[in-house]
Design a protein around this nucleic acid. Structure first.
Lengths: 213, 213, 213, 213
DNA sequence: TATGAATGAGCTTTCATTCAT
DNA sequence: GATGAATGAAAGCTCATTCAT
């Protein structure tokens, strides 16, 4: 069919524009990105962008939403996933957070953009909080509560700030943003050490303490 | 004295401009800040800014340097401060980091700006790394090494990423950036819980383990 | 045809802008010309100029090139035109130079601009030298050489500075620049007298003087 | 005496400023010259210039007047100098014009500035015409007339445009402006050839040609 | 006299946005 | 649907000019 290719093209246009927008916004930030460069990268002209999106802000918002969706879905899935013992779950959970915040380039960059442009796009932050941070912290709290009830958690005060468990992954993300090319980081190792630190702490146990297997 | 008022004025002008620049850049980010607004806030006109600074970039750079100086001095002092036992030092150290990254408004905002504008001002990041991050991590590593030698540290692998100890403070900074007004945070409590988490970990000790008081 | 008017418009825009630029630059010089005035004269807005040209310098350069082209073409043609006897050719040649430098308003003004803005646009001078002055002087020298060989030229030392033959036309150009409106000049007459002066000199020959060795 | 140096300084200030202005205006042209650079070169500050001169225009005007004065005086002297035979006078005259227009750097540059900025400073052109061009052309015409009466001049029509005799010197000036660095010019030789060309012309005379109708 | 901080009008340049085709 | 020429509101920056000291 003659119109097939064209129709498919047409259906894909917005996505191609958002892909291009992602690259440009990540590279230069919101204000310094020119819609003309986005268009060029997407292989269209400026006018075409305005056919699909209201204005520059909406391109940014749509792009962030588009690239955040997988995160939101995963967060949702995690929130309803079957739990196991607290230590096991927490390990799996931290692993997931590392992937989102530090390992997977797409997610990592989206997070950076949110941090950098937070004050200009409060509604995006709200969405992110509602769709990602909220479920994640909620699920985290439930697990910690369950663990605390079973005596698997040493100090239940962590329930006041469950997001502290995100800190290492977040910290790694920021480090990569700041010192990106300057020194390579072994993320696998970073993860292992962070898990060990959070679960078992820095200080040794008194003699005779086997810790936990 | 005849020239007193004017001379004093003049000597203070650059500082007043940088104060105004701080407010504006923090509020709107680098690109969205208009130098005219900075001037108005400083009580001068555009031209005056160009009398003291080469261009917008240099205003930003000078401002970040100006507001980073206390940090750099503190970091240097810390790096040469007398140590005590590892647990004691680490607690004091985390307290210091909380003040820098989350509690003191000036330092906190400077840190955010560095994060947000990192890619546009790599030389500022380099400076910050050299003057703040570097000494801090160095001092941290030394303390951890000393502690490990004395058996005060459980797992010496933390020496591979001493900056993990910054993670809670950094995380709090980001949280306040993202969700600032949405919910108030008890930073004192956050600090206590983070210290407890890092030093003693999440998981309980087997029966008979007194941990450490 | 639907797109006709617009397409034609578009194709003509750069030319219209350069026409307007010519008028403004000639009237006020490079530095004192405002691109906004050029735009207004061309019936467009400032932004349109930047759609077709990189910046003010490039507008100037493009304009000079555009208006120099006919000169360069003519110079090239002259350089390859069939010669006749030296006196005949030189007369025709001086006539041509008068047209370029003094009579034709476009060429005359371009020459003035080159003189006035020479230090800011050395590359334009280079081009002009290569495309106009070069061929002209070359052709001139050939003719003088041929004439000298045939004994039609009295003193062959003119070959060291063939451009001396341009002097009257150049001088007239400058006079018109300096005293433009103040007194009208009969250019036809100026030409005749200059030709007579150059070809036959001021002084009478003594009786029986053959004028050549 | 303490005030001596200072008083002398003071008396010299305007001259020093004009010297500096000369260098800057010659180098960059009127519009592109910053009064601040003039001040710096003169070893004073911007404000000082405004103490001695009304504004930028007046600095330029005063400078041109200052540097034109020797020319005007010389022109006046020439206008009243004792004449000799036309050929002798004309040779001396052309020599003088070469010095003014091409050889002496100060005069040469002033002439260029007048050419370049003619349209912005018509009153300077008027002055120059009245004080220099006028007397020179007048004196020239008188000499030519005397020569013609004595039969020393071949074709009296030169009296219609006596300034044609300036053409070689003017042409050399422009050449040096346009192609200054590109090739060195032997000005002595240029002068000799120009004199020969003007006085005796390019073409040989047929035997028995009386040279005047 | 001389200074130089301060001004502000004015210029170049950018770019999101529009719209006739 | 898509184009890209055209717009015009900003914004950065310059610099002649002023004036309190």
């Amino acid at each position: 069919m003659a119109g097939g290719v064209r129709a498919r093209r047409k259906a894909e246009r917005p996505g191609e524009i958002l892909d291009a927008a992602f690259e440009e916004f990540v590279q230069k930030g919101y204000a310094a990105t020119r819609l003309e460069d986005v268009a060029a990268r997407a292989g269209v002209t400026k006018g075409t962008i305005y056919f699909y999106f209201e204005n520059k802000e909406q391109v940014f918002v749509a792009m962030v939403r588009e690239f955040s969706r997988p995160l939101h879905i995963q967060a949702e899935e995690f929130a309803t996933s079957s739990s196991s013992t607290a230590p096991e779950f927490l390990r799996a959970y931290l692993c997931y957070l590392y992937r989102i915040l530090a390992t997977d380039p797409r997610s990592r960059e989206i997070f950076r953009l949110l941090i950098a442009e937070a004050s200009r796009f409060p509604e995006l932050i709200d969405e992110h909080h509602q769709n990602f941070m909220g479920p994640v912290v909620k699920r985290l709290r439930e697990s910690l509560e369950a663990g605390a009830a079973k005596g698997e958690i040493r100090s239940p005060s962590i329930l006041e700030f469950p997001e502290l468990l995100l800190a290492p992954a977040l910290s790694l993300n920021i480090s990569m943003l700041l010192f990106s090319d300057r020194r390579p980081i072994d993320m696998e190792r970073h993860f292992e050490i962070a898990v060990d630190l959070l679960l078992n702490g820095l200080l040794p146990r008194p003699a005779g303490d086997p810790g936990r297997h």
